Amino acid sequence: MNTKMNAAITAVGGYVPQTILDNATLEKMVDTSDEWIITRTGIKERRILEPGKATSDMAAFAIQNLLENSGVDPEEIEVLILATSTPDTILSPTAPLACVKAGLKNAWGFDLNAACSGFLYALSVAASLVESGRHKKVLLVGADKMSAIVNYEDRNTCVLFGDGAGAVLLEPAQDGTGVLDTVYKSDGSGIQFLSVPAGGSAEGTGQQTLDEKRHYVQQDGRTVFKNAINGMTTASNELLQKLSLTTETIDWVVPHQANLRIIDSVGQNLGIPKQKIKVNIERYGNTTAATLPLCLWDFHNDFKPGDKILLTAFGAGFTWGSTCVVWGDLRNNN
């Protein structure tokens, strides 16, 4: 009897910059307060990448952390998928550069942009490469230098975002662990509510766009808030129904870390107790494609083989969805 080949997460890694931007510092930069930020978002501090460093550097650091923890030879890595909304440059993909910086001499790589859902979408792509039998070691990294596209004069957005990177290694498994199934959605009309308007092919760079600061994140927070709660809730319920699972059979929920009130609302809608929901937003803020893998990195010692983990995210585009993973044994030494 043949057992289905799954793609299992066998190692995790992460990186956050040393520089901390806390709420007290933001109080001196814009008209806001620590109490307001914590009450509205749940964020106490976020990490900011040092000048001269880019998304590729954070990705490489996260990869190196994973390789050091797991003992995997970097030359064994075959593919790198980099989920990011903040590539080093517009034309050249960042993944091949991250391969060079991390010493992945035999890997080919490419970028995938689905905003805050990027890691989730890329997880399905990476899993497919393993499940097909074409590749045995696929690295997936979520990394974003959000400080590069945040306007630190806009109090509505600058309090939300931080920089960071998380990495997972996917390998074949036939023991029932790995990625079980997914439900992904998108709605292109959402671009009007959350985007960086200028700098792409629709609206290039010019003095007017620079003066109007249209190269920074612009968001209709109320609309995004409502859609995020509804999107993650409905996608998760659809996935559980698809897998004939109930919320009681889910051991952990790892949600996108955009806003603590969104996380709490999704948990309440799903009927999942807070102690099952992993949250680190208070330390990192919204690191976009990095939030999910950073949670897996932060909390991997809490996950036991056989645990069912529900991952869910919502991002610009709009993009959203949910994935269910059965946790396996990690190669990680710590």
Results as ranks from 00 to 15, higher is better:
T86G: 03
S236F: 09
C324P: 04
N6M: 11
A95E: 03
S147Y: 09
K53I: 00
K213R: 15
W252I: 10
A98C: 01
C295Y: 00
A143K: 08
E212V: 00
T3W: 02
E68I: 07
A290H: 04
A126M: 12
D307I: 05
L129T: 09
A258S: 15
T89S: 05
Q219L: 14
W252T: 08
N156K: 14
R222E: 15
T323M: 10
K44R: 15
T288H: 00
Y15G: 02
G71N: 03
V325W: 05
A202R: 06
N156D: 15
I281P: 11
N23D: 14
E153K: 12
N6I: 03
T319V: 08
A290W: 04
V196H: 01
E27H: 06
E75H: 09
M232S: 09
M29P: 07
A258I: 12
N6Y: 15
P273W: 00
V183G: 00
L330C: 07
F61N: 05
E282I: 00
T234L: 13
K145D: 07
K278I: 15
L67I: 09
M232W: 11
Q275E: 15
V325Y: 03
N227P: 01
T25A: 14
N151K: 01
V266W: 04
P17Q: 04
I272M: 12
G321N: 08
F303R: 05
M29Q: 14
S236M: 10
T312P: 08
C99T: 03
T323P: 01
T287S: 08
K53S: 05
V179W: 04
A165F: 06
D163C: 06
L294F: 03
A148D: 15
A107R: 02
P17Y: 04
N106C: 03
D264P: 01
A24F: 10
G52C: 08
S195G: 00
N259A: 06
L310P: 10
K276L: 10
A126L: 12
N156T: 15
D251R: 00
V159L: 06
V141I: 14
W36S: 05
L260F: 07
F225V: 13
A198G: 05
V266N: 09
K274I: 13
A173R: 13
F303G: 05
G267L: 13
N230P: 00
I272W: 06
K185S: 09
D22H: 07
A11W: 11
H135Q: 10
E50S: 11
T84C: 04
N23P: 13
G306W: 08
M5K: 14
T3K: 12
S124E: 15
K53R: 14
T177W: 02
R46P: 13
D220G: 00
D187E: 13
T157I: 13
N151F: 05
L239I: 13
I9V: 14
I281E: 11
L140M: 12
K44L: 12
R222H: 13
S124N: 14
V150R: 01
A24C: 09
S186C: 10
S56V: 01
D181S: 11
L245H: 05
K278H: 06
M5N: 12
Q268D: 15
S33Y: 12
G221Q: 10
V150Y: 03
G221E: 09
A98R: 00
A228Q: 12
M58R: 02
I38V: 15
Y216A: 09
A59K: 02
L140Q: 12
K304H: 13
G42I: 13
T319P: 05
L170C: 06
